[in-house]
Write a protein that binds this DNA or RNA. Structure first.
Lengths: 197, 197
DNA sequence: CCTAAGATGGCAGTCACTGCCACTTAGACA
DNA sequence: TGTCTAAGTGGCAGTGACTGCCATCTTAGG
């Protein structure tokens, strides 16, 4: 029950159109920048009408964050599956790494660098982080944290992890994995449930 | 050397125009919502041309965040003035509270509620948080933290404080001050410089 | 008082995004 | 297999944020 085989032809066409539009858009974003690329250009490059681009991706930003829902769903699923005997913080980190595995496509590194350059996209990224945050809160509640504690711990966690991500471009001489490790080490000092039971 | 007395008439006019535009905009935002208010309406209500509104506030969002720079500058200044003998976390909290004191205008509570309702504005808020984050990083570096540690601690701090702010509307039965207190208590477990010296 | 800098308003243009409608095509069912 | 229906596409017109340009007016300062 992994990838539902899009049985109907219509769905396959739809997926292909989406993929072509995304590919054309990414190509243009990486060469020209996000703001300098118009939806009209993207549509022309993908061989569809601008109206069609908007039908698949209501906002231009969605062409960059087209896997937003997939990412969030994945994170939530991984957290739900986490074995109960695993420590809370360790489970969070494991789920995070599992989700990031989605991103290992060829051009995704370049896409991340694009994100660092464009303030518009960084703001949209905040929406993604907010959804991750919500998933983390849900998980912490299953581990017995009350609403306030779950919210605060999730905030500190997402904040430190976000900082680690920023460090990847800020201090590139250190490998990404070590930035995350440093964040986790720092967070370990916090009082994670259910240790306080 | 606190508030430079805007000597010239031109500056006073400019400030008055700004204030009138902001007042008109807030009035409309609160009654109609942000997205439902056009810049043309704001200009009409303020008695100026739309072009003039854009000259004072390049983006419509800036009408909500018109004190962005003031807030960030204030936070940075308060952190710089913080007495060296005060603990790092305590200094951060004190500076934060000092900055929030700016917001005690009459309609600012309503404005905060507006912010909770409009996703567009929440994203812009992320930019403000990023600037606060940068100020916190600078401060932590003066306390001897290296770049990595400063970034991570600032991330955790901003994350937990942001969560506390969210809790103000999420759990309104608890007074705001206690949410912040809970965040601080949680953060106290972290290894703040220069305690590790 | 005179000139230069700064501020405003209007105009035209770009671009993201939307509603509407007409047309084509794939799925479903007789 | 033919037909009806729903989904997908494209074009068109319109709104609203934002920008560059220029003509006009006001203030600063000698």
């Amino acid at each position: 029950m992994s990838t539902e085989p899009r049985s109907t032809l219509r769905d396959r066409n739809r997926a292909r159109a989406r993929a072509e539009i995304v590919a054309a858009a990414h190509q243009l974003f990486l060469t020209q920048g996000f703001g300098e690329t118009s939806v009209e250009q993207i549509a022309a490059a993908a061989g569809v009408a601008p109206r069609t681009v908007f039908r698949h991706f209501p906002r231009k930003e969605d062409l960059v964050f087209h896997r937003h829902a997939e990412h969030v769903g994945r994170l939530a699923a991984l957290l739900e599956e986490a074995p109960a005997e695993r420590g809370t913080l360790d489970a969070l980190v494991a789920a995070l790494l599992g989700m990031l595995r989605l991103d290992e496509g060829p051009s995704d590194g370049a896409m991340l660098r694009l994100l660092d350059r464009e303030p518009e996209l960084q703001r949209r990224d905040a929406a993604l982080v907010a959804d991750h945050h919500a998933a983390v809160v849900t998980f912490l509640r299953t581990r017995g944290a009350d609403a306030q504690r779950a919210e605060l711990l999730a905030g500190a966690f997402m904040g430190a992890v976000g900082a680690a991500r920023r460090l990847v471009t800020l201090a590139p001489e250190i490998p990404p994995r070590e930035h995350l490790a440093a964040a986790v080490e720092l967070l370990r000092a916090l009082d994670w449930p259910p240790s306080s039971v």
